[in-house]
Amino acid sequence: MRHTFAVLVENNPGVLSRVAGLFSRRGFNIESLVVGETEDKTTSRMTIVVEGDEKILEQVSKQLNKQIEVIKVTDIPDDESVNRQLALIRVAADQSTRQEILQITEIFRCRIVDIGRKSLIVEATGDETKIQAIIESLKPFGIQELVRTGKVAMLRGVK
């Protein structure tokens, strides 16, 4: 089972290594971890995706809460949240393929953020499935470099 936690932490040096250390020494599997400052400069928010059964997820949440610098741990179920990742993809592109690549990026509402002589950089945002789909569509042209963030997530507002 895959699960997403939003973890609000004190914005102190060392807090990332404490959290990462906790995961490795307790044998929890991190799929991805994204961290950044929040609207309040004294706190950061981590979005952590973890793989594990219910018992493990319960321990993850409890052990996170036990850290002095962890202020709040929130469950973020996929179906109640907005999830986004960002990917930068360098695709091989010459005169003959450029047009086709541009069409694909339009369909997926991606952006071209750099044009080189022999390649393009595509910027894609979306949830996991969308990013995966873009990567698959660009593969035939030759992906030279790929970098992606982990997932960030936010619960949807009450309707």
């Binding site: 018992k55 319960e58 321990q59 409890k62 052990q63 809460n65 036990k66």
Partner: peptide, 8 residues
């Protein structure tokens, strides 16, 4: 007193 011990 330590919730993490319960169910561990």
């Amino acid at each position: 007193v330590d919730p993490a011990e319960i169910g561990k």
